[in-house]
């Protein structure tokens, strides 16, 4: 620390050497950025361009034919099933978003504002985080003994005499899909909101109190507006994850519901790659539009 004190203000006194350093520095920046650019170029950009190209190709049961046909899009967008699947996926996204936002905000708010010591805050936050670092598929399967026909919930309900026969819609239903998605994705809402809440200057809340605001008013007029960027980041995560989901829908609905990604997955397993690619392009455009819409409403750049 003593060293930092001895040092005078930034040194303008080395013109030639400084210039060399800055040239080298700029070169270093390119070298340092190169691996990231290379990996994302090969495994993100190129595959997406490939998908866009393939979506215009022709195909039969055996192989793909490079071409420029619009039939894949015509078939995708002309089918009533596609529209219903998109609507169903958007429905999941809306419900899961609302639930994760509600749960995520209150969980983050509790840890950030009602837990007093920093150690306890870290511990509770970690307790919330740990399950999200374990296998998604296992976490999904773990609902089966709970929700199943002879599962814990049904057994309890029957024991208590609340129902006479097992409730059938607990598992393999839209209810189960939404429940599992909330279970899987809530942390993506908790983390960014917690992050923004922790950075709110506590003096602002004191000031609001001193000015006569009650708890609700502080929450509504001070905390919520300042938490918006975190909510926006969480929203982007949850919405894009739900829009891309196929395994939760497949496992938890028992094959009775569909999502866009599941439709793609089925086309892929039938080797109808151009059809899946056309779907992928439509889904990608939709997701990017949704993200752009969220970014228009809330400025998240300050968060980084």
């Amino acid at each position: 620390m003593a060293i930092a004190v001895e040092q005078p203000a930034a040194s303008p006194a080395r013109p030639a050497g400084a210039r060399l350093v800055s040239v080298l520095g700029r070169l270093a920046a390119y070298l340092q950025a190169a691996p990231l650019a290379l990996i994302l170029g090969v495994f993100l950009l190129a595959p997406i361009l490939m998908i866009v190209a393939v979506s215009f190709w022709d195909y039969d049961f055996a192989r793909l034919y490079p071409d420029f046909v619009l039939t894949n899009y015509a078939e995708t967008l002309g089918s009533w099933v596609t529209w219903r699947t998109y609507l169903n996926t958007l429905k999941y996204a809306a419900i899961v978003w609302a639930l994760t936002l509600f749960i995520g905000f209150w969980v983050a708010y509790f840890i950030a504002f009602h837990v007093r010591t920093a150690t306890m805050q870290t511990v509770l936050f970690l307790v919330c985080t740990v399950p999200f670092l374990t296998s998604n598929i296992i976490r999904m399967i773990s609902w089966i003994p709970v929700l199943g026909r002879n599962g814990l919930v049904n057994a309890t309900l029957i024991e208590m005499g609340l129902v006479s026969a097992p409730v059938e819609w607990l598992l393999y239903s839209d209810f189960a899909v939404v429940l599992a998605m909330v279970h899987l994705y809530t942390l993506f809402m908790v983390t960014p909101i917690f992050n923004t809440l922790m950075r709110i200057d506590r003096a602002l809340i004191e000031a609001a109190r001193d000015a006569g605001a009650n708890g609700c008013q502080v929450l509504w007029n001070v905390v919520l507006p300042l938490a918006k960027p975190g909510m926006a980041i969480g929203t982007i995560f949850v919405v894009t994850l739900v829009m891309a989901d196929f395994i939760t829908v497949q496992v938890m609905s028992g094959g009775q519901s569909a999502s866009v990604a599941l439709m793609m997955r089925n086309q892929m397993s039938l080797l109808q790659y151009p059809a899946a690619a056309a779907n992928a392009v439509v889904l990608l455009v939709l997701v990017l539009l949704m993200v752009a819409g969220i970014l228009r409403v809330v400025d998240i750049r300050k968060e980084l």
Binding site: A33, L36, A37, L40, F43, L44, L45, A46, P47, I48, M50, I51, V54, I236, F237, T240, M243, A244, F246, A261, M264, R265, M268, Y273, A276, A277, A280, L283, L284, V287, L288, V291
Partner: peptide
């Protein structure tokens, strides 16, 4: 490059899978 990295987060995983596979 920064936007490409952010895009990598929001592009649905199955699209990456399909793209790289094809």
């Amino acid at each position: 490059l920064f936007y490409l990295a952010v895009a990598s987060l929001v592009v649905p995983s199955i699209i990456i899978s399909l793209g790289i596979g094809v």
